[in-house]
Design a protein around this nucleic acid. Sequence first.
DNA 1: ATATATTGCTCTAGAGACTAGAGCTATAGA
DNA 2: TCTATAGCTCTAGTCTCTAGAGCAATATAT
Lengths: 137, 137
Amino acid sequence: MLTIGDLSKRTGVKVPTIRYYEQMGLISEPERSEGNQRRYFKGDLERLAFIRHGRDLGLTIDAIKELISLSQHPDRPCVGADRIAKEHLEDVRIKIARLRKLEHELERIVSHCDGHSIEDCYVIRALSDHGLCEGEH
Amino acid sequence: MLTIGDLSKRTGVKVPTIRYYEQMGLISEPERSEGNQRRYFKGDLERLAFIRHGRDLGLTIDAIKELISLSQHPDRPCVGADRIAKEHLEDVRIKIARLRKLEHELERIVSHCDGHSIEDCYVIRALSDHGLCEGEH
DNA sequence: ATATATTGCTCTAGAGACTAGAGCTATAGA
DNA sequence: TCTATAGCTCTAGTCTCTAGAGCAATATAT
């Protein structure tokens, strides 16, 4: 039997966040102590790790819910789960591409700054003037 | 003289977003027509492009506010602007590193999925079991 | 000149994924 | 038994918009 605090420490998910997940229907309502405190089993550790893991990978709460519901019908083909992962991979790749451009641009901006006056500050000018950019963004 | 719609079309910033920026103090309150509609000048185009540009680069509204206020004191050294850009570059690099790991992990997950039953679905197992991960995340 | 279509206005609420605080209660350790 | 810590519920705030309702102004077509 674990308290919500134990669960939190063992999974790295903050206490209010655990309660929030319960509210969102990601974890089922746990048993309560005589004094109405939540009491968890080891199985909850795994479920929470699953959720945490998915969130770390950037899946939305809804995507995780879908996966959980999928995982509760082990007889069905796993095409759904595959689709979710694939869609997400696509997203991630787009984000990376955008961030790379951004990194590039910021590097140029920072490297041009001479620390003198605002008037000729490259940061300000770069933000003001689209013509100074190398790529589209 | 531009309407808010013109400004929107020319900068790619949506109309409600322009009003939101006004509310947040990023752009000053424009003149109004007889019928109380906002009327902008060309200078507003530039200011909005500056903001848009900053947001595209992922700067927060507050960071942009800081930059605007810096740019209004052209006599001061531009160390502040430089610092904002540098801090942001750091953030961006961290984000890219995280996303790369994630991409890698999702690739592995997707490539292992055989489209059969949930029972042996790699997506589900990978999310359940931290041990299947290659890196930390 | 008038009818209509489009655009604009304000105000409020919602999204997503939490996080923080108030005010109170339960439990664990000394 | 006392007290510190951890737990409870409920509400509201974060951030950056976005959407909708209900109404007014402007532009275009006839």
